[in-house]
Design a protein around this nucleic acid. Structure first.
Lengths: 347, 347
DNA sequence: TTGTAGGCGTTATCAC
DNA sequence: GTGATAACGCCTACAA
């Protein structure tokens, strides 16, 4: 009758007339073990079909080699690039990823954070939900000095490391570019300013307007979820304005809204960029498919993921003090494409 | 001096003059516990800052409430939809996801499978890498009767459940549609036929040709990784043919290759669908941005993920016998868009 | 309804 | 180099 018990280091120990302690050491490449015994142990483990039990180990060693990743949504191009970048680094260093999504809901974020804490992740990588106002739900992590790294949507002030881009200057650069193309009535499709990224993009846009002595037109600032629908709605909004009151450019805080706005305007016969120039944000694949191709900011998700994971792992390995670095700003370049090149069409 | 020890159920027990067993039961909503003691326990837990330790629990109960997810790549629209769907279901049922990518490499797939086994995931959800030929690396799971559910890229014959769509009939339908639009020289951009999905799409395409008495033209079957570059290359290939030898339609096994092929052909002045009609596969966001919009097969990733996760969780909860159902085929509808509507342009 | 005791599989701390 | 032993934090018979 086949016992359904796990094969443990005790089985190996008995099999080889060794102690469990020695087997454990042999399996963990402990330098105190002689080459020969180690080989015997490894061979025996293989032939007995031994598979180490990670939590028994975790329980003792207090290390799970698992990182928690908590994001608003999994299914966006940006976020999946981030995850891919994180997974790659983590895997290389022997860490696994537990991934959960808050679906833009603080309550779910709190629940997930608690679960991850209970699973004793060695570190937490997190991008905040749409309506997260404070981060006391992360206190358990702070108290136990479990490293937390924020990325993309980060909290206002905090002790932890944040991986970000300079949203302000990116938005400034893109607005400046539109202005230099001769645009003076630039509309902005923005997101919820509770989230730093959208607030900063709005700020950059406004600062550029100020610097070039252009008025900030209140009704040219639309706030939405930046969905496809929001893009289409923005187009409707524009079309409903008398032609002379319409914007001559649109800067959207993401590519999705920009693209769907463009599509809707094109469908109504407006020419891009002649009638309305366009710029987006993220460098999503759709920005290179829409015609004309969309000017945007290259926000490199994989590098964000890589950097965040590398940073937290370095800290875990004691290679760096988390509290030395407070924030890492990655570059995010302006990618100029046809949708904003009004110049060509001037004579 | 603040002890850095964890708060355990023993601390709660001592605090309340109860036994650890009672505390454990109270925390787990064991019905044998009186309302009052339970409340005392829960309150004490909160005030002492108790956080349950999942793996101490797992070690005992042999349940991790964690599902392993192993995919070729994280960063595609389809896969991130799948993951989002899985996460949603899993979360709702109290399960977590450990996610890893094989990067299309069997060796990495083996390594990741072993890690997940060692982490004692309660179940494994897997889509095979590009070059996985056999699945003996999953034997540990089979032996210990840990449920494995395959999705999208599934192995040829196996005992486990597979979540798939009918790739054959989808490809057949799309090819038939192109034929009915009057196309007779249909090119197929395919993937590696080692993977069932690409083999079946090829089969469906060929069967449709046969049924309509159209010849299968060998040089109209291109195999590639279906990347953007592959799409562009295919366009070059077409343009290098003498005009009269060119295809009058292209059916690509994914949208990416289709879209980049379209873009390159359009850039050279070919009209779509008049000169070449197009159809893709997946219903990726880019298919609704390219002009004309791309006819494609709606392959609903979120539903795949939902179904896979639901299926494995039902099994874990004993709500279904995994070995009753061998395969679940989801519907994947043909979405007809302008890129294939040649009819309109005939007189 | 609550308590006692033993063990899940591993690793750390001593010894030898 | 290797062995014995005691934790790690929790759960679950069994007893009371």
């Amino acid at each position: 009758m086949p016992e359904d018990r796990e094969v443990t280091i005790y089985d190996i120990a008995k099999y080889l007339n060794l102690s469990a302690a020695t087997v454990s050491r042999g399996l963990n490449d402990n330098p105190m073990i002689s080459k020969t015994t180690r080989k015997k142990i490894v061979d025996a483990a293989k032939s007995l079909g031994y598979q180490s039990n990670t939590f028994a180990s975790s329980l003792r060693s207090k290390q799970t080699h698992t990182l928690g990743v908590l994001v608003p949504r999994l299914n966006s191009h940006f976020m999946s690039s981030v995850l891919a970048g994180m997974e790659d680094v983590a895997n290389r260093h022997g860490y696994n990823l537990i991934i959960a999504q808050s679906l833009e809901d603080v309550e779910k974020e709190k629940l997930n954070a608690a679960t991850m804490f209970n699973k004793r992740v060695d570190g937490l990588l997190i991008s905040l939900s749409y309506n997260t106002k404070e981060i006391t739900h992360l206190d358990p992590f702070f108290q136990r000095k479990i490293p937390v790294v924020f990325f993309d949507r980060v909290p206002p002030h905090n002790e932890s490391t944040s991986i970000v881009i300079n949203n302000f200057s990116a938005a400034y650069a893109i607005t400046k570019h539109l202005i230099e193309q001769g645009c003076s009535r630039i509309m902005h499709l923005g997101g919820n300013v509770l989230r730093n990224v959208y607030q900063e993009r709005l700020n950059g846009y406004q600062q550029a307007l100020r610097d070039y002595n252009l008025p900030f037109i209140e009704q040219f600032h639309l706030t939405s979820t930046l969905s496809e629908q929001a893009g289409t709605d923005a187009a409707r909004y524009i079309l409903d304005l008398p032609p002379e009151e319409r914007p001559d450019a649109v800067f959207s805080a993401n590519d999705t809204a920009a693209v769907y706005c463009m599509l809707a305007l094109k469908a109504e016969g407006l020419r891009i960029p002649e009638d309305v120039a366009f710029a987006g944000f993220n460098n999503d694949p759709i920005s290179r498919v829409i015609e004309p191709n969309l000017t945007t900011i290259d926000y490199p998700g994989d590098i964000v993921g890589n950097t965040a994971a590398t940073n937290i792992i370095n800290h875990l390995k004691g290679l760096s003090n988390l509290y030395t670095t407070n924030s890492i700003t990655l570059r995010a370049d302006l990618v100029i494409r046809a949708s904003s090149l009004k110049t060509n069409y001037k004579n």
